[in-house]
């Protein structure tokens, strides 16, 4: 069975060549490693945290950051019912049309609408933010090394620049940002968003909740994925076991 060993070796070497090159990712500070409910083979999203994170997004992040891949109807996954979703959507005004007279008109949002973007275009968003582009957040947790930890790290990483470091006008010091200079003003303050449950209303908790919410937004089917994965894995394990027995029985006479 030397060949199996060789095979395993080759596979290991091949796989080790693939590990994402995160070491050089950023010259920012080492990201914090929090323990999240969605980690692990059967991790799930904490619904209460998702709802709080959504509230923080709506009241704070959403002022500059769009999430155009997420729809109000998707909020069902956060534990809201149809009427609540309708009410949330209806708070926003959308331009629709043209109507029979060829005019564009305004109407309240519907569950089938994507999250209302704060700016009409990328250019407008940059113009309003000193030339810095507030990235769309639909996929942010997957579009940054470190995912939820990165988001949490940035939101809690603001501080004063150490001696000898110059922060340009209109920029801020953030220990977690690659290069440490960030264009976004510190967005969160303790007590800024009021929670309906008794979670603490601190920057730390806000950051955790937003990170959870954005992780869900970037990977809404994660729970399904893990569930199906466990089933598929167990099925294949038994199948492979049966095949091993079949093969062994069959070959017993040959060897």
């Amino acid at each position: 069975m030397m060949s199996i060993k060789k095979l395993a070796l080759v596979t290991c070497v091949a796989l080790s060549a693939l590990s994402p090159a995160s070491a050089r990712a950023a010259e920012g500070g080492a990201l914090p490693h929090l323990s999240w409910s969605f980690e692990g083979v059967n991790g799930t999203y904490d619904r209460a945290s998702l709802q709080r994170g959504f509230k923080v997004y709506r009241e704070v992040c959403g002022a500059c950051h769009s999430m155009d891949k997420v729809y109000y109807r998707d909020l069902e996954a956060l534990g809201y019912d149809e009427d609540q979703i309708k009410a949330v959507a209806a708070e926003y005004t959308f331009i629709d049309g043209p109507n029979d007279e060829g005019e564009m008109y305004e109407r309240p949002g519907r569950p089938s609408d994507p999250f209302k973007a704060p700016y009409a275009s990328r250019e407008q968003s940059m113009y309003a933010n000193n030339g810095a582009y507030p990235p769309d957040m639909s996929l942010l947790a997957k579009a940054r090394h470190g995912g939820a930890n990165y988001i949490y790290g940035i939101l809690t990483g603001y501080g004063h620049a150490p001696e000898g470091h110059e922060v340009p006008e209109g920029k801020y010091w953030n220990t977690m940002m690659p290069g440490h200079i960030i264009a976004m003003a510190p967005p969160l303050q303790d007590g800024q968003v009021s929670y309906d449950d008794n979670a603490s209303q601190t920057v730390d908790q806000y950051a955790k909740d937003v990170a959870t919410f954005l992780t869900w937004a970037s990977e809404p089917h994660m729970e399904d994925r893990k569930r199906v994965g466990i089933t598929a894995f167990l099925f294949l394990l038994v199948f492979t076991g049966v095949m091993y027995t079949v093969k062994k029985k069959l070959w017993a006479k040959i060897h």
Partner: peptide
């Protein structure tokens, strides 16, 4: 031995069919 092998093959076949279906 023959019977046991047939049974095993049948099991394997059934697994394969169910797997493919799923």
């Amino acid at each position: 031995g023959q019977t046991r092998r047939d049974f095993l093959l049948l099991t394997a076949g059934a697994f394969g069919a169910v797997g493919a279906g799923c």
